[in-house]
Simulated assay, not measured.
Amino acid sequence: MDRWYWCGSSLTAGEVVCTTANGIRLYDGDKRTGYDDGHLTLTNHRLLWRHESQSSSLGLHLSLVVLVEDEAGGFTSSPKLLLHLAQPPHSKPAGPVAASSNSFIKLSFRQGGCSSFQQALQNAIGERDWEKVVIPSLPASHGKQSGGKTIHTGILGIERAIQAKQEETNQNISHAFEDLKNLMGLAKDMVFLSKSISNKIKEHSGEVSVDDTTRFRSYLLSLGIDDPVTRETYGSATQYHHHLAKEISQALEEPVKEVGGVMLLSEVYCRINRARGLQLLSPEDVMHACHLMKKFDLSLNLHTFESGVQVVQTAGLDQDKVVETTVETLKSHEVDGVSAGDLARECGMPLLLAQERLLQAERCAKAVRDESSEGLRFFPNLFFSRS
Rank of each mutant, 00 (worst) to 15 (best):
157 G>C: 05
91 S>N: 05
145 Q>N: 14
83 L>C: 08
76 T>H: 12
46 R>D: 08
60 L>R: 01
81 L>C: 11
90 H>M: 00
55 S>N: 13
58 L>P: 00
79 P>I: 01
136 P>N: 02
147 G>P: 10
64 L>W: 06
125 I>R: 01
85 L>T: 00
180 L>F: 13
135 I>D: 06
62 L>G: 01
120 A>W: 12
140 A>F: 10
44 N>S: 08
113 G>A: 10
136 P>Q: 00
127 E>N: 10
52 E>H: 13
179 D>T: 08
143 G>E: 14
95 G>I: 01
51 H>Q: 07
179 D>L: 14
146 S>H: 12
121 L>Y: 05
167 E>Q: 15
108 S>V: 03
89 P>S: 00
174 S>N: 15
133 V>W: 06
50 R>Y: 05
128 R>G: 09
134 V>Y: 05
101 S>Y: 02
151 I>G: 00
128 R>H: 09
178 E>P: 07
96 P>A: 01
62 L>W: 02
170 N>V: 08
166 Q>F: 05
150 T>H: 03
159 E>D: 12
118 Q>T: 11
90 H>Y: 00
98 A>T: 08
97 V>G: 00
173 I>K: 14
125 I>T: 01
94 A>H: 07
162 I>E: 03
68 V>G: 08
117 F>R: 06
169 T>V: 13
160 R>Y: 04
158 I>H: 04
119 Q>A: 13
72 A>W: 07
